[in-house]
Design a protein around this nucleic acid. Structure first.
Lengths: 255, 255
DNA sequence: CGTCCTATTGAACAGATTCAATTACCGTGG
DNA sequence: CCACGGTAATTGAATCTGTTCAATAGGACG
């Protein structure tokens, strides 16, 4: 619980020479919409922020007057119910945007999972920049529509999938992400702990742990050192994720 | 199951005099972004489509080359898992847009709950219109961001709320919608059946029915004729929705 | 009045949770 | 280098919420 009580945003002075030198990751998102001069301009709008592990960026109910772009580390986005139940709406990784809500209040809280760095854009300046570069608008729409599709997929997972299917789907999603960088990747890193995963998948940490054990025992995955998971049998993991898990407790696929 | 096997879109000839005379509802969404001449222009892009109850508009996997705006009736948006489990991602009512996906394939299926009418815009023409009216882009973004927030709220419901809380939240959401039209409204109409509600809330139709009975018995709601539900004790319904349902089976709030 | 479909109700069951105990891990310090 | 302490993860057993399967009731319609 105490991770939810952290003090807000720690804003560092900008590195010398450039207002947001560390923000190149973010630029990938907009590179299709902007030329070099415009990118330079956008850079100048931002300042750098750093968060320690478990430190909060903003809480649900806070004023949403700043837009962030995560450049390093990872965040969790979550909502708390009055009695303490928590639902993690998503994990954010370098390149992801944050705080793009239309309303002026955040509906969710955001916290660092591990030490993180962000680019910080005051909403007013960001909006003015958009006014001058209408193509960004389309890019923002593209991002929001993508997020919406992902959110609806998660609704299917939360509403209709079993515990095994949920964790298998989750691991496959992370693998797909890893494969964008390296198409041959067979391992994923889990910066978040079991409780984070559980609150994302609508389960308890015990159930998540049990399913990890099941997947390990049936030689579908292997748990390596340092939060690394090796996907040993992707075909079987996909079968489990789609509900075709067979007797689930037994051996691997054809081979 | 047979409702899922319906033939696709029934496209009617346009009413005489105007290409999409019935589409005024849709215009409300864009009125903040367009002037009268532009609205007229947009109208000319559309044609009218009608659906019977349980008729399908498109299926998951279909090409997403048309954008719709619902003008009459209601739709369900859902995804099927390979074994037939269904998750309803949302219900659509007059004024709602549909088919705005970025990718070229629909991830979800859409079906009429009751007889419905839509405006139909070929994607190419719609995109060209947007190119000429950049302010619409912002409006589209606003819509998508709103949908995203709603989808995340639904994730909280599906991941962390009990059956009682889910149905109470659902009824309150419909009441809030009804109150946009009439701020004093105390009744809501449920065009969808118990199975639709169950598949939206991640429950079974039996559980939905049981919770309806509970709410009825504890005099929080009253079931009227013709799919109408009267919210008798809104305060108590809100308490149940937020997890403060007390002993849940007993009488109403202070009165 | 009978048929069909939906909704409701009942009782046994199952998957995930809860509570509790044990084990593994990691950084620290002797 | 290894013991120690604290946290996270795993495992176990009982419990519970919601499901499943089955039967009954209700309503619309011919």
């Amino acid at each position: 619980m105490n991770s939810l009580m952290q003090s807000p945003l720690d804003l560092l002075p900008l590195p010398a020479g450039h207002p947001c030198a560390a923000c190149d990751v973010r630029m990938q998102t907009f590179c299709s919409a902007l030329d070099a001069g415009e990118l330079e301009q956008l850079r100048c709008l931002g300042s750098t922020a750093r968060l320690e592990a478990d430190q909060s960026l903003f809480h649900q109910g806070d004023q949403a007057d700043v837009i962030y772009n995560l450049t390093k580390g990872s965040l969790r986005l979550y909502q708390l119910l009055p009695d303490g139940r928590r639902q993690v709406a998503g994990f954010l990784f370098p390149g992801d945007f944050l705080g793009l809500a239309v309303n002026d209040e955040h509906a969710f809280s955001a916290e660092a999972i591990e030490p993180a760095e962000l680019c910080r854009y005051p909403r007013g300046r960001f909006n003015r920049f958009i006014d001058e570069h209408p193509r960004i608008e389309r890019e923002l729409y593209r991002i929001a529509a993508h997020e919406l599709a992902a959110a609806r997929d998660q609704m299917v997972l939360l509403g209709r999938k079993t515990a095994n299917e949920r964790l298998a789907s989750f691991l496959l999603k992370l693998l797909a992400r890893a494969r964008k960088g390296d198409p041959a990747a067979e391992t994923i890193t889990l910066p978040m702990n079991r409780l984070d995963i559980a609150d994302y998948l609508g389960l308890t940490k015990e159930t998540v742990s049990r399913v990890f054990t099941l997947l390990k025992t049936s030689q579908v995955i292997r748990l390596m050192a340092g939060d690394v998971v090796r996907i040993v049998d992707r075909a079987r993991l996909e079968a489990i994720a789609s509900g075709d898990g067979g007797s689930a407790g037994s051996a691997g696929s054809a081979g």
